[in-house]
């Protein structure tokens, strides 16, 4: 399978959040601000990439029947390390993401990729796959988070998690027009639904255009 194709799919056609509906729990909960979305996304990229690497390295020696618990242990260890490191070095982000950092363990995407890809492919491909999926997931979170933050507070901002330096900050919607509902669960569900519908539209359009051209739909 062409690695680059695989990489590209995750962003639109097989977007883990909006098309495959994986990893929804953090997607909805954490996406209140761009900062949090990016923070969570990077954490997932790190865990996913390293987990894929280790699982792939061990794929020849891991007994078949016990592979799921083994993957779980590896992923849990990585997540806990990330949690401790974030607690020490990026304390504010740690507090903002809260319980969702340990919950990365049960993010279906990570276990899913370990089982579906890393256990069957070489290390180089697994690293790229992990990184790509993580990036795609981050892109989904950032999309959701930016829209919600923009609509709920009127602006966006990004802060360096290590020293709290403000990287950028702007407001484009005056505060009288902000809709605070987007900070709430209801707003999260609605934004998600809209984006999921948009992705579906894109998928349909692409399928029709491919069919018209006589090409194979994958």
């Amino acid at each position: 399978m062409n690695q680059f194709e695989n990489f590209r799919k995750g962003f639109l056609r097989e977007n883990p959040a909006f098309v495959l509906y994986l990893g929804l729990c953090p997607a909805l909960a954490i996406s209140t601000t761009l900062n949090n979305a990016l923070g969570m996304g990077v954490a997932v990229i790190v865990v996913l990439t390293i987990a894929n690497t280790i699982v792939s390295l061990m794929r020849k020696i891991t007994p078949m029947d016990i592979r799921i618990p083994v993957y779980i242990v590896i992923i849990a260890t990585l997540v806990k390390m990330v949690e401790l490191l974030m607690h020490a070095f990026t304390t504010d982000l740690y507090t903002a993401l809260g319980v969702f950092i340990p919950l990365i363990v049960v993010n279906c995407i990570i276990l899913g990729r370990a089982e579906a890809f890393a256990s069957k492919n070489n290390v180089r491909d697994s690293i790229i796959d992990g990184f790509g999926m993580g990036l795609a997931f981050t892109w989904s979170l950032v999309l959701l988070g930016s829209i919600r933050q923009l609509l709920a507070t009127g602006g966006l901002n990004l802060v360096n998690p290590f020293n709290q330096a403000v990287l950028f900050e702007f407001t484009i919607i005056p505060s009288e027009y902000t809709i605070s509902m987007f900070n709430q669960p209801t707003g999260a569900f609605i934004t998600f639904a809209m984006l999921a519908a948009l992705f579906e539209v894109y998928k349909q359009k692409r399928m029709t255009s491919l069919k018209l051209k006589g090409k194979e739909v994958d």
């Binding site: 209801t186 707003g187 569900f189 998600f192 639904a193 809209m194 519908a197 579906e200 349909q204």
Partner: peptide, 20 residues
């Protein structure tokens, strides 16, 4: 249901209303 919303997206909208 409108085509893009069929299945899961409209379910999300329902969830939004229930959350409300």
């Amino acid at each position: 249901t409108p085509l893009p919303f069929k299945g899961n997206p409209i379910a999300m909208i329902v969830a939004a209303l229930m959350a409300l």
